[in-house]
Amino acid sequence: MQTNSGPARAVDILLVEDNPGDVRLIREAFHDGKVLNQVSTVSDGQQALTYLRKQGSYEQASRPDLILLDLNLPRKDGREVLGEIKADPDLRSIPVVIFTSSLADEDILRSYNTHANCYVTKPMDLEKFIAVMRSIEDFWVSIVKLPPRL
């Protein structure tokens, strides 16, 4: 689903997801969308923060334009990661999309209270899943004006 405006540039997406199945599904969805974007994946919260702060082996990592964050993660859970991102003046401008299977009200509320940019639940059905992924891509990559790259 391409938009008329089209992406001005390739968008860097950081996917924080511990389930390789979901990683694959998300990549498949993006792949089908044929959008020019760069998806980097980390599988736990600690790695996500290391990546964002360009520490350790992620020294060469680029600053992502969008973060897709799962809530239930090993080592450091998505809620903490969100909190740290939004508390960090260098990182807080990066939009964070919570993408999780949790339907719990407290998770939704807490995420928005911690300044998540939106909260999306993973659909059970493959087709819906792909449709949702495309909507996210379409919205955040094509419609939204992202903060300028530093």
Partner: peptide, 17 residues
């Protein structure tokens, strides 16, 4: 149960597609 189930459902569907 939903998480693994989603995996089974999604990938069998993907397989079918």
């Amino acid at each position: 149960l939903q998480e693994p189930l989603r995996m089974v459902a999604s990938f069998t569907q993907l397989l079918a597609q």
